[in-house]
Design a protein around this nucleic acid. Sequence first.
RNA 1: GGGCGGAUAGCUCAGGGGUAGAGCGUCGCCCUUACAAGGCGAGGGUCACAGGUUCGAAGCCUGUUCCGCCCACCA
Length: 1006
Amino acid sequence: MNDENRTALAKGYAHREVEARWYAFWRARGYFHGDERDQTRPPFSIVLPPPNVTGSLHLGHALTATLQDVLIRWKRMSGFNTLWLPGTDHAGIATQMIVEKELQRTEHKSRHDLGREEFLRRVWQWKERYGSRIGEQHQALGASLDWERERFTMDEGLSRAVREVFVRLHEEGLIYREMKLINWCPRCQTALSDLEVSYEEAHKGELWSFAYPLADGSGEIVVATTRPETMLGDTAVAVHPEDERYRALLGRSVRHPLVDRTLPIIGDAILVDPAFGTGAVKVTPAHDFNDFEVGKRHGLGMITVVGPDGSMTAEAGPVAGLDRFAARKEVKRLLSERGLDRGSQPHTLPLGRCQRCETVLEPLLSNQWFVRIEPLARPAIQAVEEGKTRFIPEQWTNTYMSWMRNIHDWCISRQLWWGHQIPAWYCADGHVTVARQAPEQCGTCGKGGLRQDEDVLDTWFSSGLWPFSTMGWPDETATLRTFYPTAVMETGHDIIFFWVARMMMMGIHFMGEVPFRTVYLHPMVRDEKGQKMSKTKGNVIDPLVISEQYGADALRFTLAALTAQGRDIKLAKERIEGYRAFANKLWNASRFALMNLAGYEEGGGELAGLDLSPADRWILARLQRATNEVVQALEAFRFNDAASTLYQFVWHELCDWYIELAKEALSGDHAGRRRAAQAVLVRCLSTSYRLLHPFMPFITEELWHVLRDEVKAWAWPDSALAASYPQKGTVDEDAERTFGPVIGVVDAIRNVRGEMNVPPKAEPRVVIAVPERQALSTVRGEAARIALLARARVEVVEGPTAPAAPQTAVAVGPGFELRLYLAGVLDLAAEIARVEKELTRLDQDLSGIEGKLANPSFVQKAPAEVVEKDRARAGELREKRGKLEAHRAMLSGTEANTARRDTMENQIPPMPVAEMSAAEPAKVEPAPAPVAPVVEPAPAPAQPEVNAAPPAPKKKAAKKAKKPARKAKKATRKAAPRKAAKKAKKPVRKPVRKAKKARKAARRRR
RNA sequence: GGGCGGAUAGCUCAGGGGUAGAGCGUCGCCCUUACAAGGCGAGGGUCACAGGUUCGAAGCCUGUUCCGCCCACCA
């Protein structure tokens, strides 16, 4: 590679330019196509929940697309024969409403002005115009859908499946037509299923009482109602049969005060709760679901007084023709006039409204088609009980089960035009013929001139067939054989009943097998305030706008990172910005690599035989650990864990540590070390690209190609998408453990530098004491890297402590002690304060642990390993404490008598040490083993310890110095009430300060 | 009325009996030749409240208070 190519990457990641390229590339190569003839690879299929054809995608869809694409790309890369099947739903009522609204707006016409045929032509037009938008949006998001198999619920094939299902269910007696009470929307002018009713939780209404005079004039019976207008349809008054107050009235009747009718007083133990209201209930079988049942039980008349348009019918006598709400007022007035008003009280009740238009629904008696659901539900329940399909998160199993167990017959006919017209025909005599194709003559009487049922089917009827109708059913296709059942149904929990449950029932019934093995229910996406996104609220975010702004990869990664189980997603743009920065980070790490890969060729990519440094082995171990965690997370549908593992690894381990550590080898002249670092860097990056590809397909694809070309890795597939997904494997824990002290030491030095305001350019001398042999040799071997990262001149000595010296700061970590020589910059007071702060923390930690260890029942009852761990930690802390105490004592002494400094230093005998300076990093010379255990360090050089060290700003030092005191006070204040509150017998858990550094290091060594 | 979630750092959220975590924001220092969309460091928590179980509780149990959501035919 020449220099021009090596620096080909732009300085920042430009998502627009990169994203524009790859989708067409993938498609052209047919990577997205699921091969139904391939029986060698295991299948993995997902059907995309079909969005409404006339809608456009919102963030909920983007989430669905992202999570499914993550799964599909992961499985595809893992060697599965994947199929992700796209399509759209005709969404009957929703679409019809949109087009009607548009028609009204532009032409001031209703659908009736156009007529059915012309109106449907318009809807199809609309569909053609807007349907493609969804495809474009999915492509912009990078969704690897198999477009060759795209389907629409009203395609001829799917319509055929709908008719087939309808006819078969009818033949089996599972579809029937009946006059029943259904939910009716007076505005939409159609029947709705129970699920399409949304209840206004606590509608504040009134409970109004009035009296029915007894027919014989001997008295009255008072009833209460929330709907006075329906009293015109009353056909009885019911009381509890056991109710003493009304026992005498049973079997007698009342006279209707507004129409010429008498009503029986009946006893009904199911309907009537004697404790509620007056214990007497008016019964309106044609306008109330409970009353309907009462009517059937008692053979009562059913009088429809509210018509389909919401106005009162002719049956309503004095209020006929009035709107139902106007009629309510009028009825109350009329009854009051007759002296029958018995007062009212405020009453909250659930009020059923149309899910689409929010109109108050009317229970209406009408002829509709129903699915007898219980025989279908039973196997669908059983399948879940037997684990043939499982829900994730698991808690949704209960939701599914409880609904399925209390399921009612499903009203499937809709008085709409847009949808699958019901395949039923009527002759002049009203006989019904159900058939796959339009029949010539009536199946009952043989008459011709049949008329097809004008109604269409509930849109969910066809959606319920989606997993198999899209694969060619009722034909026995290779696609069905290969890809049914699907592996995962990934969707929102808001449509468990509407869709998931119906697919379960239909799939089992018609395919003899559940439609999916796993149902993964993702959280709902909300805006930053936690509100549901909706068009009416105007807070809907178009994923394309976000993509355009931050990049599709950033959006995808954000959505995946926020997808934890059990909580809705509140999407804030700061979060997306953060992940855009992550993409940029990955880009720049790659850019760095390209600048340092001159002369490197990947070849077979073998790492064995290379001269791997401890840092090389460490990052490879971390890479394997990250891989394991990501794969495990994906297997468990823990998208957020997978995302955060990747983020943590790439940014904080690969970039923050490894790349920094590798700079020396990469720019040095040791060919073997350089080659090793190059190979490891390439391995880390290429593996990261593959791991990240399902989450960030565009940038990883781009970088894959760039890196592949750069290192001539012709053995790699020429697309990240076609590369294999990294596999779980054994982590080189020894490499992790060995390298721990190096990180610990660098952290410790940086920490002291930061806290003590050591000027960034200064390179203080640091003496690191390491007692343990293996760690010693690692630290010694890595001294040059430590020097570089910590900007210090490093000496490493064997032993538990770094020899005491004035004008120094001390840090103690697990397995080492180190001393920074800070003559000229050391603010004694600040150092004392810093150490005391550290001691305070230590004491808090220590007293907690010692308290535990002093408790005999802890020692007896806790698992031995827990006790052992605490003992070890207590020892560690005590040792650290001892060292810091000694340092403090020395500092105090120095403070008291700084004049003695020179004397003390002069007393220190000279000794050989390994010395490393950041200024001369390439110089690696093995240090002669110093004499153990404790040796005093070399005499301080004559010049100041710190290069180019200006005096520390006094203000800042003073400010810092105050902090620990404040801290301690705060801690005491906090601890006190807690102590008092806790029972005396219980050990007090003091607030424990963080030992961030130690834990970080511990995590790395893990 | 029944059910299910949630309450952890200023904000958004992970975690789920054994040393309180991340991202963003905040503060300090740094343009160190991959990246200022950056680096290094620091600060920040009675894990909603009250009981209980346990050697040990943010986590498990019981109850309470708030906030969501779902289901339901008390007129």
